[in-house]
Amino acid sequence: MKRILGVSLLIFMMAALSACSNDDPSKEPASTPTSETTKELASEPATASAGGDIFQKSCITCHSSGDITGGQVKLDSTKIHAVFQQKEELYSFVSKNMPKSAPGSLTKEQYDAVVNYLWDQK
């Protein structure tokens, strides 16, 4: 049973990542945060509510979550907590891989806020 659950979660994560792939950049909307957007978002504290705003501006192209709807992949908090046992694991993944169009382009504070937002959803 654990093996089936593990394989299912792996398939879900692979599907989520492939949905946001940049195989053909000419068809992708320009969603790389500009320096002005990054400066604007950097001033926000690393709270879950600030994370919702940052999520709306930086992640919505590919994802929707909670009450925020947008991209092809809806993030589910139960699946997030099943895949990532600790908030630090989620932070590590998100900060290295997201946003897909510009991984690592947000500030530490922005990643903290987005991870707090995602982690606190129930």
Rank of each mutant, 00 (worst) to 15 (best):
I4M: 15
S65D: 12
A30N: 09
D76A: 01
Q56V: 09
E40H: 11
K79N: 07
V115R: 09
M14W: 13
G66D: 15
A48C: 11
G71H: 14
L106P: 10
L41Q: 06
G52M: 05
K57W: 11
L90N: 05
L118T: 14
S49I: 05
P45V: 07
A15L: 11
G66H: 13
D23W: 15
D67Y: 10
K100H: 15
S105E: 15
A46T: 09
K108I: 14
A82P: 03
Y91C: 03
T78L: 03
K2P: 11
Y111C: 14
S31A: 15
G104W: 00
G104R: 02
T78A: 00
D53S: 14
D24Q: 13
D120Y: 03
V94P: 02
S105C: 15
G66A: 15
H81F: 00
C62Q: 07
V83F: 07
S8F: 14
T38N: 00
Y117P: 07
S92Y: 00
Q86K: 03
D76T: 00
S92Q: 08
L17K: 12
P99Y: 02
Q121H: 12
K108M: 12
D112V: 01
G70R: 01
E44W: 04
F55S: 13
G70T: 04
G51E: 09
K79V: 02
V83Q: 00
I80E: 06
F93P: 11
K39E: 01
Q121Y: 04
E88H: 01
E44L: 06
L75F: 09
K74L: 08
G52T: 02
L17V: 09
A19S: 13
S65I: 04
M98E: 15
V94D: 00
I11N: 05
K2A: 15
N97W: 10
G6I: 10
V83H: 03
V83D: 01
L9K: 09
E89A: 11
E28D: 08
K57F: 12
